[in-house]
């Protein structure tokens, strides 16, 4: 059973101009890097998989369960897809402290009495000392670690990271990349990572799908990046 299997076309329009992406990708395990220049359709691909945009045609499944199939008219609601999503910006709820952000997706009883495994998550991501802090007081790297903890807390079956290091300074980025790599290896959670940084892709990825001008143009090992870097 593949973690992700997708073949679809999706489009968005804004201010009279339209943009579409044609996607063909699959992930069995590990980290699949969605690589390509800005505006090549990577984020639109993720948004379609997550469920914020409807595909025009095609289908996608996660861990064997169909999340949408345009021909059959079926679509699984976003909140039932069990995808952990970490965006580039606006990643934390500004009206909650770090603890409330991390437990946001848990049932009420667990929000009031935080389970041991969630407390362990705070330790694992090095955010235990930030528990009572508000998002506006955190650095970019701290915010993304909290966002990652929150995404992992609900035990997703797929993790989706949309340029998670884009707004982090160089030192913070190196630390976070190393931490994320160790965490993903430990947990073995299938992950889609969007980036246009070849170094990030090589550090974290197991395979790559190349995007260019609104379509996937290559799929395979990270060696494929050598020609595109």
């Amino acid at each position: 059973m593949k973690a992700v299997e997708a073949r679809f076309r999706a489009s968005v329009s804004s201010g009279g101009s339209a943009f579409s992406v044609e996607v063909e990708l699959e992930l069995e395990r590990g980290v699949l890097v969605l690589f390509g220049p800005s505006g090549s359709g990577k984020t639109l691909c993720l948004q379609t998989l997550v469920g914020s945009i409807d595909a025009d045609e095609g289908q996608a499944s996660i861990c064997g369960q169909s999340v949408f199939d345009v021909a059959r008219g079926s679509k699984l609601a976003t909140h039932l897809r069990r995808i952990g999503y970490v965006p580039q910006h606006h990643s934390l709820f500004p009206f909650c402290d770090v603890t409330a952000n991390v437990v946001f997706g848990l049932p009420r009883a667990q929000r009031q009495r935080i389970p041991a495994e969630i407390n362990a998550l705070f330790e694992e991501l090095g955010i235990d000392h930030l528990r009572g802090s508000m998002p506006e007081s955190l650095s970019g790297g701290e915010r993304q670690r909290v966002a990652l903890a929150r995404a992992l807390a609900v035990e997703p079956r797929l993790l989706v990271l949309d340029e998670p290091f884009a707004s982090i300074d160089r030192d913070g980025k190196e630390t976070l990349v190393a931490m994320l790599k160790a965490l993903l290896v430990r947990r073995g959670l299938p992950t889609l990572l969007v980036t246009h940084d070849p170094a990030e892709a090589r550090s974290l990825g197991d395979a790559v799908v190349l995007f260019n001008r609104g379509r996937t143009v290559g799929f395979g090992s990270l060696d494929a990046l050598a020609g595109s870097a």
Binding site: S91, F104, V154, P156
Partner: peptide, 23 residues
């Protein structure tokens, strides 16, 4: 309210009425 926050609420498993109330 940023669309990203609403989307995150949904990906965390919150049904639409809870996203409305809590986000």
């Amino acid at each position: 309210v940023p669309q990203e926050l609403i989307l995150i609420g949904r990906t965390l498993g919150l049904p639409p009425h809870e996203v409305f109330l809590r986000v």
